[in-house]
Amino acid sequence: MQRYYIGIMSGTSADGADLALVAFDETKKGREKTQLIGHVFHPYTDTLHSRVTRLYQPKGDNIDLMASLSVELAHFYHQAINTLLEKYRITREQIIAVGNHGQTIRHRPEKTTINSVPFTLQIGCNQTLSCLSELRVIGDFRTKDVVLGGQGAPLVPAFHQFLFEERDNDTFIVNLGGIANLTYLPSSKEKKVLGFDTGPANALLDAWCYKHLHKRHDEDGHWAASGKVIPELLACLLADPYFTKPAPKSTGREYFTLDWLALQLNPKWIPNDIQATLAQLTATTIANEVDKLSPKSFVYLCGGGINNLHCYKLLKQELKRHTVNDIHSLGLNNQAFEASAFAWLAYAYDKKIYNQIPDVTGASRQTILGIEFTP
């Protein structure tokens, strides 16, 4: 009987959950070792989206909302698992474990004047999900890395290294989620694998679009393409200290907010020009980091942001010295890519494989991330 792992990924765009059904063949290497069997996307309703994004900013009812929403998301993930199993006619007995990322609502990996100790918080109660689904769930992947002094993010570079263990060229995997992050896989074994968040991608673009058009996202980037970049605004945004901070580093939607943007705005600027500037900010901050690490490379784009054709075009313009393609060009499924990473994190947990890279996160040592929950 063929057996599988399920990976669940809810990203900072807060649009829903991607689930990947994955088999791992230990007789093969690299990308051939990972077999994507199936994928479903379970979208958040407008109400659920609103409840999740409310938690990105401090409010008086946060504790009650967080606790109830954590259980609600576990029910949501359970429904999504049922959909996946029914679609591909898979029985529960065939599932080894579920790797659940959860929904990040706070990511504070460094001490601040507000929090005296670093922490990261993902909701979507793993114990509830395990009991409802009657499956083993491996979750809480980020906490241990933070305890060991790391950023707790990004975690997917370990999966990327697993997939691309054999490579002849410098390779980047750039994920355009709510926050953009990259993985640098150098061709030279003497150089370190790196990964970090470069700054905002869909988070600000979507929030600004919703504020003015009442749409969750700027379809194909048409609205941004209708505007013109405001050089003065772009320079102000790029002056934020996060963009010059050395890696390891990570951030979240709670940092790059509309309030952060509002501090730099001039009332005379029109909304679509501001959207055009935010798109350019994403492209510029990614390209700056890629250029620092490699003069010439292969760059593969993934994440929901690759559907923003305007951003995609800007990135290709900014990365002229590099070969830029999307993840589909490698025969990989973009929608299932991050969810597959969390299936692998659960697989690595079971196989006692190090599933984190200290050079990426800044943790004091290598370790195996994850906590097991049983029905």
Rank of each mutant, 00 (worst) to 15 (best):
P271E: 04
P271A: 08
P271M: 03
N272Q: 11
N272D: 10
N272M: 05
N272H: 11
D273Q: 00
I274M: 02
Q275D: 00
Q275V: 00
Q275A: 01
T277I: 02
L278R: 00
L278N: 00
L278A: 01
A279M: 05
L281N: 01
L281D: 01
T282K: 01
T282E: 05
T282N: 08
A283F: 00
A283S: 10
T284P: 00
T284G: 02
T284N: 01
T285F: 01
T285M: 03
T285G: 04
T285Y: 02
A287I: 02
A287C: 06
A287Q: 00
A287W: 00
N288E: 12
N288T: 13
E289P: 05
E289R: 05
E289F: 02
V290D: 00
V290F: 01
K292R: 15
S294C: 11
S294V: 05
S294E: 07
P295R: 05
P295M: 04
P295L: 04
K296Y: 11
S297I: 02
S297A: 12
F298W: 12
F298Y: 13
V299H: 00
V299K: 01
V299N: 02
L301S: 10
L301K: 07
C302N: 11
G303N: 11
G303L: 11
G303Y: 03
G304L: 07
G304I: 04
I306F: 11
I306P: 05
I306S: 07
I306A: 09
N307H: 14
N307Y: 06
L309Y: 15
L309R: 15
C311V: 15
C311T: 13
C311G: 10
Y312H: 15
Y312A: 07
K313N: 14
K313R: 15
L314C: 08
L314A: 04
L314I: 08
L315C: 10
L315E: 03
L315V: 10
K316V: 05
Q317K: 12
Q317V: 11
Q317C: 12
E318L: 03
L319K: 03
R321C: 12
H322V: 10
H322I: 09
V324H: 01
N325C: 13
D326Y: 12
I327P: 01
H328K: 14
H328G: 13
H328T: 13
H328I: 09
S329D: 07
S329E: 09
L330D: 05
L330M: 12
G331I: 08
G331S: 11
L332M: 13
N333Q: 09
N334S: 09
N334V: 04
N334A: 11
N334C: 10
Q335S: 09
A336H: 01
A336S: 07
F337K: 02
F337G: 01
F337A: 03
E338T: 06
E338C: 07
E338M: 06
A339M: 03
A339C: 06
S340N: 09
S340P: 04
S340G: 10
S340M: 13
A341V: 09
F342V: 10
F342S: 06
A343T: 09
A343W: 06
A343R: 04
W344S: 09
W344E: 08
L345D: 08
L345K: 10
A346Q: 08
A346F: 05
Y347C: 13
Y347Q: 12
Y347R: 12
Y347L: 09
Y347V: 06
A348E: 13
A348H: 11
A348T: 12
A348V: 13
A348Q: 12
Y349I: 10
D350C: 15
D350G: 14
K351A: 14
K351W: 14
K352L: 15
K352W: 13
K352V: 14
